[in-house]
């Protein structure tokens, strides 16, 4: 088994497609870097002067008219309360003194940018790793090399298991490298721009955990790819199944039965990566006067829900792939 694992891992890294995929990942990181560069720019003297000016203007305006506006607001509220005693115009909040930070742009800190880009990169990295796994396994069927392979190692469960484990290891390493590179580039850019900002240890820890969660999700995507590759025996078909499912089935189910969200990939993935995700289910009824109305009840999926869902789905898919590979003819 160890021998097979070594050979399969070696084969994955010998494949051109693995390297093309990693190269595509680098391109995406490069593009993200450009956006990061723009965001991270410090505020220029001219921008600073402009926003100072805006602030002074607003302050002056408030000092001159603030009291009157508050009075007007309260009066209108009192008027409204004659018909609806619960009317609340939020007059105090709407007429606060302007604050300096409301004016002008604040360059986001490294931690803020890194959290965002890492979260946004999850889907791309996951898809790239999926592609590595799916094409590596499917190519064996399209070329027929799997037949040759089985005349050297006929124990099918071992054969596919070694491929899955190799894909898992490779997917983990590839996605970890890509995510690390992404965070590293972001830091370098923030630093160069001089807008790294505060680096509190809990913020760093949160970022570290986020990168691990994205890497874990991408690793699972690789296993899904390898399993679908073995089931469909064609890279294109594996991609079509994955995309078709994501777009057609998930989209349809979400629109048709929102309460099934806990059984869909997208909300669970968001919960896993972002910490939680919410979905709302309409509660509709027709009241005594015959009016049909709906209220929306919001539900939350937590990180643990996402983890459990992902684990179960991938485990089931792997079992199905192993079972099918054991049974089916290889011609």
């Amino acid at each position: 088994m160890m021998r097979l694992l070594v050979v399969e891992t070696r084969r994955l890294w010998l494949r051109r497609l693995t390297w093309f995929t990693l190269f595509a990942g680098l391109l995406v990181i490069g593009l993200t870097g450009v956006a990061t560069w723009q965001q991270a720019q410090p505020v220029s003297a001219a921008e600073q002067a402009q926003s100072d000016n805006d602030y002074q203007q607003a302050l002056k305006d408030w000092q001159a008219n603030g009291e009157q506006m508050l009075k007007d607001c309260l009066q209108q509220q009192a008027e409204a309360q004659k018909t609806d005693p619960k009317a609340d115009f939020q007059c105090q909040a709407a007429n606060q003194a302007p604050q300096r930070e409301w004016f002008g742009r604040q360059p986001p800190s490294f931690l803020e940018i890194a959290q965002n880009t890492t979260r946004n990169a999850a889907l791309t990295v996951g898809f790239l790793v999926f592609l590595i796994g799916a094409s590596a396994v499917a190519a064996e069927f399209t070329t027929g090399a799997i037949g040759t392979w089985l005349t050297f190692e006929p124990r099918r469960l071992r054969v596919l298991t070694s491929k899955l484990v190799a894909t898992g290891v490779t997917g983990f390493l590839a996605s970890a490298a890509l995510v690390a590179l992404l965070v590293g580039t972001t830091y370098a850019i923030s630093r160069y721009a001089g807008t790294v900002g505060a680096l509190p240890s809990d913020g760093l820890r949160a970022l570290g955990l986020l990168t691990l969660r994205v890497t874990a999700a991408a690793t699972l995507a690789g296993l899904v790819g390898a399993s679908l590759g073995a089931l469909t025996r064609h890279t294109g078909a594996a991609i079509a199944v994955a995309l078709g499912y994501a777009v057609a089935i998930e989209g349809f189910v979400r629109a048709w039965k929102p309460e099934l969200a806990p059984f869909l990939v997208d909300p669970n993935l968001n919960a896993w990566i972002g910490g939680q995700s919410t979905y709302s289910v309409p509660l509709c009824s027709t009241n005594a006067e015959g009016f049909y109305s709906c209220t929306y009840v919001e539900h939350t999926l937590w990180q643990a829900d996402g983890a459990r869902f992902g684990g179960i789905v991938v485990a089931l898919l792997i079992l199905v792939a192993l079972w099918a590979f054991r049974q089916r003819d290889v011609t």
Binding site: R11, E140, T143, G147, T148
Partner: peptide, 13 residues
């Protein structure tokens, strides 16, 4: 056992 079945099948790349 060594076998060639039908036609040789290897990884083309």
């Amino acid at each position: 056992v060594g076998a060639i079945v039908e036609s040789p099948k290897f990884f083309p790349a």
